[in-house]
């Protein structure tokens, strides 16, 4: 009896020393308690999941690139799969010039600008800075000169051209079209305008109620 229990204790210690404890970091793929060969088709069903690997397609990806010229019908706002509003989708007027203002299809209000701010902070602030002065965090790590929004060239720039820059990029800035939907790009443009306006503020812009609080006379 004693020997049997001793052997058992030895086996237990052996198992613990081989298997270790919970929470240790490891590099090899996790052990499968219910392996695929014993339970086929249970955890790994014959279906494709996003960004997964495919053994069927030559390029090895399950996400299929769109054939040239194809527009996904679900892309963009509902009801406009054709994107036939040049102002909204290309930032251009009927004559092909950069549109100076915002598309009529969008309501420019506080919510819209707040949305623009949220998107700006995520996607633009790292380089353009919280104030739009081109002093983002990336500058300290070697990002080249990022223009400030607060000069005449960018203050005069038509909204459509700023929209186009977000869509297609410019110089060293790459396209953000995959990250921002058209209406989100316009929201960012609106917030960029708000940043520009903020830098040109005067004491007269401060509401009377807050003037005293801020010590403005």
């Amino acid at each position: 009896m004693r020997y049997a229990l001793l052997v058992l204790a030895f086996l237990a210690v052996l198992a613990v020393s081989l298997l270790g404890f919970r929470g240790a970091t490891f590099v090899k793929p996790p052990i499968d308690v219910f392996p695929e060969w014993a339970f086929p088709g249970m955890k790994r069903q014959p279906k494709y999941k996003p960004q997964a690997e495919s053994k069927f397609f030559a390029d090895g990806r399950t996400d299929r690139p769109l054939p040239p010229g194809v527009v996904a019908s679900s892309y963009g706002p509902a009801g406009q799969p054709l994107r036939d509003d040049d102002h909204l989708y290309a930032g251009k007027t009927a004559t092909g010039a950069w549109a100076p203002g915002f598309p009529a299809a969008l309501a420019i209000d506080r919510t819209f600008i707040k949305r623009g701010q949220e998107r700006y902070v995520i996607y633009c602030q790292p380089c353009h800075g919280a104030l739009g002065d081109g002093q983002g965090i990336t500058k300290a790590y070697g990002m080249g000169a990022t223009p400030t929004y607060h000069d005449d060239r960018l203050r005069q720039m038509p909204a459509g051209e700023i929209y186009n820059t977000i869509t297609h990029g410019k110089n060293t800035m790459l396209s953000y079209a995959d990250k921002l939907a058209p209406d989100e790009r316009w929201a960012v443009v609106a917030y960029v305008r708000a940043l520009q306006r903020a830098q040109q503020g005067t004491p007269a812009d401060v509401p009377a109620a807050q003037q005293k609080e801020l010590g403005i006379k």
Binding site: L8, A12, R22, T25, F26, P29, P30, D32, V33
Partner: peptide
């Protein structure tokens, strides 16, 4: 004792807390 140890082992080693936590490829 054997059954107890086996139950302990299964609970400790055959659940995701052991099999997945810590995976850092």
């Amino acid at each position: 004792v054997l059954g107890g140890l086996a139950a302990l082992g299964v609970t400790y080693y055959m659940t995701p807390k052991y099999t997945r936590v810590g995976y850092a490829p």
